[in-house]
Design a protein around this nucleic acid. Structure first.
Ligand code: ZN
Ligand code: ZN
Ligand code: ZN
Ligand code: ZN
Lengths: 158, 158
DNA sequence: TCATTAATGTTATAACATAACATGTTGGCA
DNA sequence: TGCCAACATGTTATGTTATAACATTAATGA
């Protein structure tokens, strides 16, 4: 975990803000942010990094929830569907989104050295992908954009 | 499988061309395209679609090779490392590359309706990703770019 | 020849994910 | 209130993907 980065922002307030947003969103859409779902989101917000489903599950077990795999996967998929969690495909792991307020195509920068993951965003209507896809009449519904490499901090300390 | 597309090009010659290229490449780089590796590449070139590691394994078993998982994974990883096979992260499956001659960042268009996968390519030095990454001093070593959606043929017949 | 490296064989297990069905909870409506 | 329908959770079992670890064999080249 990138400790420098973690300390550079008011993590507590950032966590609370997103949790509030999630509650509001669910209220508006008449969806339920149940205890399990809230616990999963909270765990991901706390960690501020990608977690595997079985790590989530372990956290749920500790918190007294049922700890069978479907419990974790259901909560993760719910949160993913409403845009508050993204799946990192290359890592088979899940990460909280800190700017879920807009429809966005997340771009993940995954540092292979410190495991820190940065979420960036691209404008879906200006990106190369829709251009590429349009050439062949392909209609995009979902984009997975992940870059592996080395972050600035790790490059500097190498 | 997209039969239209498959029939639109001389698949046999395209397969042979890539296989030749792979042999040449390995010769030049002093790498060995061993029987198992060649069998795996051939299978992927024949199918012209993404296959899971265990489908590959079944093919190997039929061809008389040892059929334990590591056999398939080693061959797939070898072919991936030299750029003749790509992994589709969203599908946990593997697909042959038909233009492995240049260093390229593949972009996959995955049709959710017919399962056809189209590989496109972006210029690594002009793409948005390096711009995004550069902003934060991140150095990219590998890109995963996958779009899910609906292909032209499926859109037309819907 | 003999040491070194690369490749393959083999067993076992880890890690990730879902099917299927039972049970509980909630909220509307007769 | 009693009932139903929809949703959420609990639970068991199993499916799917991938690697660790170590033994064996094959090729390379002093
Ligand atoms: Zn996001
Ligand atoms: Zn780093
Ligand atoms: Zn390619
Ligand atoms: Zn299609």
């Amino acid at each position: 975990m990138n400790l420098i980065k973690k300390s550079l922002h008011d993590h507590n307030s950032c966590r609370q803000k997103v949790m509030e947003a999630a509650k509001l969103y669910c209220e508006e859409k008449n969806l339920k942010l149940t205890p399990v779902r809230e616990a999963v989101l909270n765990m991901l917000l706390n960690e501020h990094q990608a977690l595997g489903a079985y790590e989530i599950l372990e956290g749920l077990r500790i918190s007294g929830f049922s700890a069978q795999p479907p419990v974790a996967y259901r909560a993760l998929n719910f949160l993913k569907d409403i845009g508050f969690v993204h799946k990192i495909e290359q890592l088979n792991s899940y990460i909280a989104c800190y700017h879920p307020d807009t429809t966005h195509s997340p771009v993940f920068l995954i540092c292979q050295s410190c495991n820190d993951i940065t979420e960036k965003s691209i404008d879906r209507h200006e990106d190369e992908f829709n251009l590429l896809a349009n050439e062949t009449g392909f209609e995009i519904t979902n984009l997975v954009l992940e870059a592996k490499g080395t972050c600035q901090a790790c490059l500097a300390s190498a």
